[in-house]
Design a protein around this nucleic acid. Structure first.
Lengths: 193, 193
DNA sequence: CAGGTGACATTGCAGTTGCATCGTAAAGGA
DNA sequence: TCCTTTACGATGCAACTGCAATGTCACCTG
C-alpha cells in the first residue's frame, strides 16, 4: 500500500469547491476543470478521485444532504432537555432555511440539485427518503389529531419559504413571521415562543 | 417590407421547443442547436429570432410566467359568479400545482428557471413582482384578521407542495390533502369544500 | 421589372466540455 | 533493493458550445 492519502478528505475538498462554484454560478457552470481550478488542484486529480462527473455530482449531493442533517441535529441539540414541540419544530425548520448570507449559498446549491434531480432522477430516491423521515418526525411531534397532512404541509411551507428566500421575494423576517403564524395555527396557541 | 412572418408566433414556437427540451433534459441541455432540432428548424433560424441565447432564455421565461397566469385566470373563470373565498383560493392554487403529467412538465421548467434566476438574477425582479401580486391578492381574500404572514405562508406552502410533487415525494392526493388541511386551519371551517 | 430588404440556411471559428491515455514519482512491502 | 501499487500531472481528442459571417432565396415596393 503506497502513499497514504485520506480519500474522503480529498473528495470533500473537491466537493466543497464544486459547491462554491455551484453557489455563485449555478450547477451548469460545474465542470471538471472549473472545479479543479476552484479547488486549487489539477484537473487530473479531480479525475483521479471521481472517475466520472456524475460520480462527483452524486458525492457532492450526498455532502449537501449530510450537512443539512448535521445542521438540524446541532440546532436541536442546542435546545437542552425536552423542549416544547413547538419550539422544537421552529428551531428545526429555521435551521434548514437559508436565512443568512452563509446558508443562502447552501440553499442555492440545494435548489440547483433539486432541479437537477427533477430531470436526472437517479438521486431522487435519497431525497425522497429524507423527506419521508422528516415528515414522520414532524407528524410525531405535532399535536395529536393533526393528520399526516399537517406534517406534509409544514414541510412544504418550509420548502416554499426557502425557495422564496433564495429568490429574494421574502426577507428573513417575513419568512419567520409566516412560519410562526403557521405554527400558531397548528398549535392553537397565540405564540408564547 | 418583404415576407411577412409572425415574429411572435415563431418566437413562441422556438420557446415551446426550448421548454420541451428543458422539461426532460434540464436547462443545461438547452443549446441553440438542440432547441433548433427539437423545433424542427435550422439553428440559423433560432439565431435569426433571438440574437443571443440569453434573449431566448428570457423570452422563454416570460412565456412560462404568462402561461401560468393564464392557467389561473381560466381556472378561476370556471368558478362562476363570486365563489367562496376558500374555494377561490383552492382552485387558484390547484391550478398552479403540477398535479398531472402535463403540468408536471411546466413545473419542471419553472423549477429549472427558479434555480437559473437564483444565480443569474437579471430576471429575478419579474418573479418578485409575480409573487408580490399573488401575495396581495391572497391577503385580500383571506379572512380578515389574518396578517400578511398568512398569505405569505399559503404561497410558500403552494411552492413547497409543487417542489415536492416534482420530486415525487408527494402524490397529488397528498398534496391536495395538505392544501385542504391548511385551508381548514385558515378558515376555521372543518371543510365544506 | 428592378432592387432592396427581410427570412432564413450554411459554414466557420475559437473556446470549452468530459474523458481516455500516458508518463512519472514516490511510498511501502518483499 | 526491487517492484508493485497508488497518486497524480500533462496531453490529446472528439464532441459540443455560442456566435459571427456569409450566402441565397423570396417577397414587396417603387
Amino acid at each position: 500500500m503506497p502513499k497514504k492519502v485520506d480519500h474522503q478528505q480529498r473528495r470533500t475538498l473537491i466537493a466543497d469547491a464544486l459547491m462554491r462554484v455551484a453557489a455563485d454560478q449555478g450547477l451548469e457552470a460545474v465542470s471538471l476543470r472549473h472545479v479543479a481550478t476552484e479547488a486549487g488542484v489539477s484537473a487530473g486529480m479531480v479525475q483521479h478521485y471521481f472517475r466520472t462527473k456524475d460520480e462527483m455530482m452524486a458525492f457532492a449531493l450526498s455532502v449537501v444532504r449530510e450537512r443539512s442533517q448535521i445542521r438540524v441535529t446541532e440546532a436541536v441539540a442546542g435546545l437542552g432537555e425536552n423542549p416544547s414541540p413547538r419550539l422544537l419544530l421552529r428551531t428545526m425548520i429555521a435551521a434548514l432555511l437559508p436565512l443568512d448570507e452563509h446558508t443562502r449559498d447552501d440553499g442555492r446549491v440545494a435548489l440547483a440539485f433539486l432541479a437537477y434531480t427533477a430531470v436526472r432522477p437517479s438521486a431522487a430516491p435519497s431525497l425522497r427518503e429524507d423527506t419521508a423521515q422528516l415528515t414522520a418526525f414532524i407528524a410525531s411531534v405535532l399535536p395529536a389529531g393533526r393528520g399526516d397532512a399537517a406534517a406534509t404541509g409544514l414541510l412544504a411551507l418550509m420548502e416554499g419559504l426557502g425557495v422564496h428566500l433564495l429568490g429574494g421575494q421574502y426577507t428573513a423576517e417575513q419568512a419567520l413571521a409566516a412560519l410562526d403564524a403557521h405554527l400558531d395555527l397548528l398549535f392553537g396557541t397565540p405564540a408564547t415562543t
